[in-house]
């Protein structure tokens, strides 16, 4: 087709992008991988070994639990919200409102949500005071600043993220399928059991994995809320980076970062496989 020379010329058009991606995306990733194996300038497995300490395993468990619990709760509630929105007029105000609000809470969240909950159930929080008035005292409790608190706050960005991620799958459900099932004799329950749920299940599972990865990688909310200890991996990385007094801490930070990347990569790979399945069915 084209001459080899012009083909190379055409490829050169990609050079700026590839160069940029290499410097700001590939280099840092590689650096993390390499540093995890280097302590004080020499090859060492010491940093990776520190991941096996009981305290680190505890933190990893906490992070997995936090991510899984909020992903499951967020996926279930979010799926229902997405469904009821999907039955409304696709160009209506309701749908625009819900998707915009979801977009803000899911992607803008971070610090802002932390303060939303400080204002709600923190020591001087509005709801704390209501409850105080009702005889339930949470104003002296620090639960909001612990793992439990993180679960509540994370759920608030997981639900909207689910709405955004799951809506396209619901839009892929053709009205003919419901009507075909109707004319073939399926009740509402039978339709969902035999058609709706099996069709949406891969998309649901994929969305759940995305939510998991999202919670697993999150840092801002936890950093703004938690001021004692590092109950999750992201905080532990920041902790290690900030601790420059101990020599091998960048190695430790890199080792934790490596652990995070690997877990998220596995999850995202599964997610993309499920996405392929979904795109074959729901388009």
């Amino acid at each position: 087709m084209a001459k080899p020379a012009s083909r190379i010329g055409a490829s050169l058009g990609l050079a700026p992008f590839l160069l940029y991606a290499a410097i700001f995306l590939i280099v840092p990733t590689v650096v993390v991988f390499v540093r995890a194996f280097i302590v004080d300038g020499a090859f060492s497995l010491e940093a990776l070994a520190s991941l096996k300490k009981a305290s680190m395993i505890e933190i990893t468990k906490n992070t997995l639990l936090l991510s899984l619990a909020t992903a499951v709760v967020g996926a279930l509630i979010g799926a229902v919200v997405a469904y009821v929105v999907s039955t409304a007029n696709p160009n209506g105000l309701l749908r625009r409102f819900v998707t915009s609000a979801s977009g803000v809470l899911a992607q803008f969240g971070g610090v802002t949500l932390a303060f939303a909950f400080i204002a709600t159930v923190g020591r001087e929080g509005v709801v704390s005071r209501w409850l105080d008035g009702a005889g339930i005292d949470i104003t002296n409790s620090t639960w909001l600043f612990s793992l439990k608190g993180l679960m509540l706050v994370y759920t608030y960005f997981q639900v909207p993220l689910m709405v955004i991620v799951f809506l396209p799958a619901l839009d892929g459900i053709r009205p003919q399928w419901r009507e075909a099932a109707d004319t073939l004799g399926a009740s509402t329950w039978q339709y969902w059991r035999h058609v709706g749920v099996p069709l949406l299940f891969p998309a649901f599972l994929g969305a759940l994995l995305l939510l998991f990865a999202n919670a697993f990688a999150a840092y801002a909310t936890a950093a703004a809320l938690v001021n004692q200890g590092s109950p999750i991996l992201a905080l532990k990385i920041a902790d290690a980076l900030g601790n420059e007094l101990l020599g091998n801490q960048t190695s430790v930070a890199s080792a934790i970062a490596l652990e995070m990347v690997l877990i998220v990569a596995v999850v995202m790979f599964a997610y993309s496989r499920l996405q392929q399945q979904t795109s074959r069915w729901l388009r």
Binding site: Q176, E179, A181, P198, L199
Partner: peptide, 11 residues
């Protein structure tokens, strides 16, 4: 009933 198109259950 037979619809215009795409009414088979894809799964």
């Amino acid at each position: 009933m037979v619809f215009q198109a795409y009414s088979l259950f894809p799964h």
